[in-house]
Computed example of a mutant assay.
Amino acid sequence: MRLTDAQTGWRDRARQFASEQIAPLADQIDQQQITPASVLVAMRENGYLGAALPARWGGGGIDPVSYGLVTEEIGKACSSVRSLMTVHNMAAQALVALGDRDQHQRWLPELCAGKKIIAFALSEPNAGSAAHAIETQAVKLSDGYLVSGTKKWITFGQIADLFLVFAHYERKPVALVVDRHSDGLTVTPAKDIFGTRGSMLAEVRLDNVHVPRSHQVGPTGMGISFVANWALDHGRFSVAWGSTGIMQGCLDACVSYTQQRRQGDHRLKDHQLVRRHLTDMLVAHTAAQAVCYRSACLREVGDPRAVMETAMAKYHAAGAAIRVATDAVHLHGANGCTTDYPVARYLRDATVAGIIEGTHEIHQVTLADYAFQRPYLR
């Protein structure tokens, strides 16, 4: 597709920013399992945290294609930093769509400006993809709720200012915005995870945390079916594009490595099987990017098929990223298993992309249903 000047501008600025301010720190972020404050400040000051949020509240208000391209460039440089964009955007987008006027005025200006970070608190020790199985409970009071439960694998939970928490009230799901400094809320960092190791995961425990009634997002009973699913849709879009970034990073790394590495009198790039792998990487990235573009275009015009087409983009791109990253490690041989080259990090990060915002298996179930219902895309 032909990009507009504005879309090209967003892509090129993000590419330069990621190359200069994120990529040089990617291995450090991975090994130290923390995203430096300097990166968070740079992301905020360059408008990337609120890029896809409404301009009326101080966000960038960019179109889905531009946001996808920005996410791809950030994801290529470092999936952990991309995950910050993902979680902040998905939770904030739910507030934009389903919050009331007072909630918009209270939270959106600082969220759009990146002055506050909001995390998405759905997963629990016994509830991942089966979101309906959450065990966190909310007891209703005259002025709000008392919330108790444990949330796990909360991306950037270590530093989030706000949490979009999902609980059950009398067997009905409810979504609540919880302040980090609430009495009874405890944050415990999660360490030594497999991939996106700098995404600052945390376990968030709520022990009779008082949440004002004004912090409820959407009506009771709609917490998962509307609020969570709205947020997850935006998360899948971001992860899909981030996965294309991983593939581009793998391809770039392998092109460079096979041009320089020699076996005897021949460079690796001259071997037929090596060239086959490079071809497969190129085609996989191009195909995944095309599916992501289609999803973005459908989102831009508000097409009702956009939600399932986004799920398909996430399923395809994340799966392709795992295959591409696996081949990239093999092309690097033993070097691919070290921290001297980025491909091992790409493989671990791609594996995580295949799990978050809906596993491959969950998508296989829902997309099969869509196959029976899907209207022809003209």
Rank of each mutant, 00 (worst) to 15 (best):
Thr4Tyr: 08
Ala6Gly: 01
Thr8Ala: 14
Ala14Ser: 12
Arg15Cys: 04
Phe17Arg: 04
Gln28Asn: 09
Asp30Gln: 13
Asp30Glu: 15
Gln33Trp: 03
Thr35His: 07
Thr35Pro: 02
Pro36Gly: 07
Pro36Thr: 01
Val39Asn: 06
Val39Leu: 09
Val39Ile: 15
Val39Ala: 12
Val41Ala: 14
Val41Tyr: 03
Ala42Met: 12
Met43His: 02
Tyr48Pro: 03
Arg56Val: 09
Trp57Leu: 14
Ser66Met: 11
Ser66Leu: 06
Val70Ala: 08
Thr71Asn: 12
Glu72Thr: 03
Cys78Thr: 00
Val81Glu: 05
Ser83Met: 14
Val87Asn: 02
Ala92Asp: 00
Gln93Arg: 15
Ala94Tyr: 07
Gly99Pro: 10
Gln105Trp: 08
Trp107Arg: 02
Pro109Tyr: 01
Ala113Phe: 03
Lys116Trp: 08
Ile117Gln: 09
Phe120Met: 06
Ala121Trp: 03
Pro125Gly: 14
Ala127Val: 05
Ala133Cys: 11
Ile134Ala: 03
Thr136Pro: 01
Gln137Phe: 02
Ala138Lys: 07
Tyr145Thr: 02
Lys152Gln: 10
Ile159Phe: 02
Phe166Trp: 10
His168Asn: 14
His168Gly: 00
Tyr169Met: 13
Tyr169Lys: 14
Lys172Val: 00
Val174Thr: 14
Arg180Phe: 05
Lys191Asp: 11
Lys191Val: 14
Asp192Pro: 00
Gly195Ile: 07
Gly195Ser: 07
Thr196Tyr: 07
Thr196Ile: 13
Gly198Gln: 03
Leu201Asn: 12
Pro212Val: 06
His215Cys: 04
Val217Asn: 02
Val217Met: 10
Ile224Tyr: 07
Ile224Met: 05
Phe237Glu: 00
Thr244Trp: 09
Thr244Val: 09
Thr244Gly: 05
Gln248Val: 04
Asp252Met: 02
Cys254Asn: 10
Thr258Phe: 02
Gln260Ser: 13
Gln260Pro: 00
Arg262Pro: 00
His266Cys: 08
Arg267Leu: 01
Asp270Asn: 10
His271Met: 06
Leu273Arg: 10
His277Asn: 04
Val283Tyr: 15
Val283Leu: 15
Val283His: 15
Glu300Lys: 11
Gly302Lys: 06
Gly302Glu: 07
Pro304Gln: 07
Arg305Met: 11
Ala306Trp: 05
Glu309Tyr: 04
Met312Phe: 15
Ala313Thr: 07
Tyr315Ile: 00
Gly319Lys: 04
Ala320Tyr: 01
Ala320Phe: 01
Arg323Thr: 10
Arg323Ser: 14
Ala328Trp: 10
Ala328Thr: 11
Gly333His: 05
Pro342Lys: 03
Arg345Val: 12
Tyr346Trp: 12
Leu347Phe: 10
Ala350Asn: 07
Val352Tyr: 00
Glu357Ser: 04
Gln364Met: 12
Thr366Arg: 09
Leu377Lys: 09
